[in-house]
Computed example of a mutant assay.
Amino acid sequence: MIITPQRGAKMGVEVSELDALAAPEEELSDLKNLVYTSKILVLKGQDLSPADYVEFGRRLGEVETYYQPMYHHPEHKEIFVSSNKKEGGMQIGVPKTGKFWHHDYSFMPRPFGLTLIYPQVIPQGQRGTLFIDLEKAYEQLPAKLRKEMADSWVVNSVRRYFKIRPSDVYRPVSEILAEIEEETPEVRHPAVFPHPVTGRPVLYISEAVSHRLEDAEGNPLRDGLLTEVLEAVGQLDTSFTHDNIHLQSFEQGDLLMWDNRSLVHRALHTPNPEPTVSHRVTVHDDHEFYPGIERQLTAAGR
């Protein structure tokens, strides 16, 4: 395994000569420790079948299957498919995913630590994924905002960016909304928590699903605070020129792996989209997502 910093990038390293299926456990442990400090790993020269890809995810931890079947790979439900291509006249996966700043699964009671993306069909023009490191961004917040965010909680919900499914056509909107609330009710997570590996505070809010800040007792914090913090860290910058924003490019054979606790991300969509297909596998790692979450889940009977 050879590790090389990405030239001229705000974060991330390239990892070459890694055999995803045959690498010894010690090497995989080193790989996971590396992602927590470097944030993004670009595993070069990978040639994995869908089954191999899922197996690699299992070597890293517990693979999470996405809760909505319309995103599933037809043969391996553990793979989330983002695609604007049709196969045999049928849509496989979902187009135009991730068009907003988000952490994966932050709208669920038990988020996961690692996200893996394996591009399959890559546009020839502008391509990539945008990232913000919310460990670093939190440290750079004005002291006043850090003080207001300390010990706060965020309420997250998928309702803003829920994608209508083929089965929802002709259904009453009220019925769809009621199902969304029943299937994915809003969840409450600490808005700032210590990273289980680095120990540094992580700001855990996103433009996509965070809609309310509260104190520990559930009382709302001041109006405008959430918007002010999102703007300060770069999530409301529609020009994508904020100093915190990193554009991660990729090429055929790259497999991206990143720290889903500290990074928010969004897809780079262009006005004239080219064919694109990407496979995602998501993994619960060896660490509690944040201190106390397992106790919360147990108390809630989850």
Results as ranks from 00 to 15, higher is better:
residue 249 S to V: 15
residue 170 Y to I: 15
residue 238 T to C: 15
residue 57 G to H: 01
residue 231 E to H: 14
residue 181 E to Q: 02
residue 210 S to Y: 05
residue 210 S to H: 04
residue 107 F to L: 06
residue 123 P to W: 03
residue 59 R to M: 10
residue 21 L to W: 02
residue 209 V to H: 15
residue 193 F to M: 02
residue 260 N to V: 01
residue 87 E to A: 08
residue 263 L to K: 00
residue 159 R to H: 15
residue 112 F to D: 08
residue 17 E to K: 13
residue 42 V to F: 01
residue 231 E to C: 12
residue 75 E to Y: 05
residue 68 Q to W: 15
residue 116 L to R: 11
residue 66 Y to M: 05
residue 174 S to N: 10
residue 232 A to I: 02
residue 34 L to V: 02
residue 248 Q to S: 09
residue 124 Q to W: 14
residue 10 K to H: 08
residue 100 F to R: 14
residue 171 R to P: 09
residue 224 G to I: 06
residue 33 N to S: 11
residue 216 A to I: 12
residue 239 S to V: 09
residue 31 L to I: 00
residue 237 D to T: 07
residue 88 G to P: 04
residue 246 H to Q: 15
residue 43 L to K: 04
residue 178 A to H: 06
residue 290 Y to S: 05
residue 169 V to F: 15
residue 117 I to V: 12
residue 51 A to Q: 06
residue 146 R to W: 01
residue 167 S to E: 12
residue 257 M to P: 09
residue 151 D to S: 14
residue 297 L to T: 11
residue 53 Y to Q: 10
residue 204 Y to S: 05
residue 68 Q to M: 14
residue 128 G to W: 03
residue 85 K to A: 11
residue 95 P to R: 02
residue 190 P to G: 07
residue 76 H to F: 12
residue 47 D to R: 13
residue 151 D to N: 14
residue 86 K to R: 11
residue 284 H to I: 13
residue 175 E to G: 04
residue 151 D to F: 12
residue 129 T to W: 08
residue 272 N to D: 14
residue 128 G to A: 06
residue 134 L to P: 08
residue 155 V to G: 12
residue 210 S to C: 03
residue 87 E to H: 11
residue 74 P to R: 10
residue 154 V to R: 10
residue 135 E to I: 08
residue 9 A to K: 08
residue 17 E to Y: 12
residue 34 L to A: 06
residue 291 P to C: 07
residue 85 K to V: 15
residue 146 R to F: 04
residue 170 Y to L: 15
residue 1 M to A: 06
residue 83 S to W: 05
residue 4 T to Q: 08
residue 254 D to P: 04
residue 234 G to N: 14
residue 109 P to N: 01
residue 251 E to Q: 13
residue 227 T to P: 14
residue 118 Y to S: 06
residue 61 G to F: 02
residue 175 E to W: 04
residue 157 S to A: 05
residue 255 L to F: 02
residue 190 P to A: 05
residue 194 P to S: 09
residue 128 G to S: 01
residue 47 D to H: 08
residue 166 P to Q: 03
residue 250 F to Q: 10
residue 47 D to A: 11
residue 240 F to S: 14
residue 103 H to L: 00
residue 86 K to S: 13
residue 85 K to C: 15
residue 122 I to L: 11
residue 97 T to S: 11
residue 269 H to Y: 10
residue 174 S to K: 14
residue 283 V to F: 04
residue 159 R to L: 14
residue 234 G to W: 12
residue 279 H to F: 07
residue 106 S to D: 07
residue 66 Y to N: 01
residue 179 E to T: 11
residue 237 D to W: 11
residue 52 D to G: 03
residue 189 H to N: 00
residue 87 E to K: 11
residue 204 Y to H: 08
residue 36 Y to Q: 10
residue 295 R to D: 11
residue 188 R to K: 09
residue 258 W to Y: 00
residue 140 Q to T: 13
residue 100 F to P: 13
residue 23 A to G: 06
residue 270 T to H: 06
residue 173 V to Y: 12
residue 274 E to N: 01
residue 94 V to T: 08
residue 186 E to K: 09
residue 295 R to F: 12
residue 241 T to I: 10
residue 13 V to S: 02
residue 125 G to E: 04
residue 275 P to W: 07
residue 56 F to I: 07
residue 38 S to P: 12
residue 263 L to F: 00
residue 151 D to A: 13
residue 48 L to F: 00
residue 45 G to F: 02
residue 101 W to N: 06
residue 280 R to D: 04
residue 271 P to H: 08
residue 232 A to M: 07
residue 35 V to G: 00
residue 164 I to N: 11
residue 49 S to L: 01
residue 61 G to K: 00
residue 120 Q to M: 03
residue 67 Y to E: 10
residue 236 L to I: 12
residue 215 D to A: 12
residue 19 D to F: 07
